[in-house]
């Protein structure tokens, strides 16, 4: 329950912090921290326009997308203190496949509009999420290897960091998780949320035809997804620091905030990759994840 609460807090400050960071770095004054939510609130009150080409798929997709992310959040524990609302052996599989379900629906809802742009976005989203899947699973495997357990809570509880190599391992994993988050959420190196040209968009172009309540749901889901991955990173980093319960909760939020600021920094100083380099960039993450997996062998001294 506590992790759910912390993730909600994280999601609340996340989009605002990113835009503040970006604004400050480009010398602007920047909006208030809750500005994104004010926009979303306005969207939630608005009416909707549906394309006449669409069918029920288009209408249920945003709902299922949100439900899938909420369902996935239920499984995330709070460090080594409290397990998620639902925890069982192999819950991270459910986590990954649940997210995939939401993505599947979003992709076909983009195809449902019959627009060339949205088809293009859907195609890219499908390709990138397919390519990033192995990286995520290899990172998870390495955590399972290191801890010897197969549920989120036990994995993070029995995750011990002893020497330099372990810290390097944590660093690589955190790096990978950040990159995976950015790809899953269609942020900068792969996709630029601020671009104005449909041909270079990925996620934004998929939701071109969504409006009103649906668009609001999609944006909230985006923030939740960010906070969810931020929580995973927090879970990886906090237990080895051996903090108390309250301090851990604080650290959790601080890590979310730091994560948001990092994303803001990265987006300010980095250009979007050329489309043809994206697959190679994403696949490289799997390669690095493989190195992290080997690092586990060095740590556990199996060799």
């Amino acid at each position: 329950m506590i992790s759910l609460l912390l993730i909600f807090i994280g999601a609340l400050i996340f989009p605002g912090l990113i835009s503040i960071t970006k604004a400050k770095l480009s010398g602007k004054k920047g909006p208030g921290i809750f500005q994104p939510y004010k926009d979303i609130l306005r969207l939630l009150k608005k009416g909707s326009v549906y394309s006449s080409t669409t069918s029920f798929v288009f209408q249920v997709a945003p709902i299922i997308y949100m439900a899938s992310v909420l369902g996935a959040i239920l499984m995330i524990p709070f460090g080594n203190f409290k397990q998620g609302l639902i925890s069982f052996e192999g819950d991270f599989l459910m986590f990954a496949y649940m997210l995939a379900f939401g993505k599947f629906l979003m992709i076909i809802s983009a195809l449902d509009t019959g627009s060339g742009f949205e088809g293009m976005g859907a195609n890219r989203e499908a390709l990138y999420s397919m390519l990033v899947e192995p990286a995520f699973f290899i990172v998870l495997s390495s955590v399972v290897m290191l801890s010897g357990y197969t549920s989120f809570y036990e994995m993070f509880t029995h995750f011990h960091v002893e020497n330099y190599v372990s810290w390097l391992y944590v660093a690589i994993s955190v790096y990978l998780l950040i990159q995976i988050t950015l790809i899953e959420n269609s942020r900068l190196p792969v996709d630029d949320p601020k671009t104005h040209l449909e041909l270079t968009m990925v996620h934004e172009v998929m939701v071109l035809d969504n409006s009103g309540f649906d668009l609001g749901l999609i944006q909230i889901t985006g923030a939740l997804k960010f906070a969810m991955f931020g929580a995973l990173i927090g879970n990886l980093v906090i237990p080895p620091m051996h903090l108390g319960f309250e301090l851990s909760a604080l650290a959790f939020v601080v890590i979310q905030a730091l994560f948001a600021i990092t994303v803001g920094f990265m987006e300010s100083f980095r250009a979007r990759l050329k489309m043809i380099y994206n697959p190679q960039f994403i696949l490289t993450l799997s390669g690095i994840a493989l190195i992290a997996f080997f690092a586990v062998f060095f740590i556990t001294k199996t060799i």
Binding site: K45, V49, S52, G212
Partner: peptide, 17 residues
């Protein structure tokens, strides 16, 4: 959503082109 949409206008139009 059903409740929300009962209070506001829901329109149908061509796909954004």
């Amino acid at each position: 959503r059903k409740k929300q949409q009962s209070t506001v206008a829901v329109e149908y139009g061509p796909t954004w082109g």
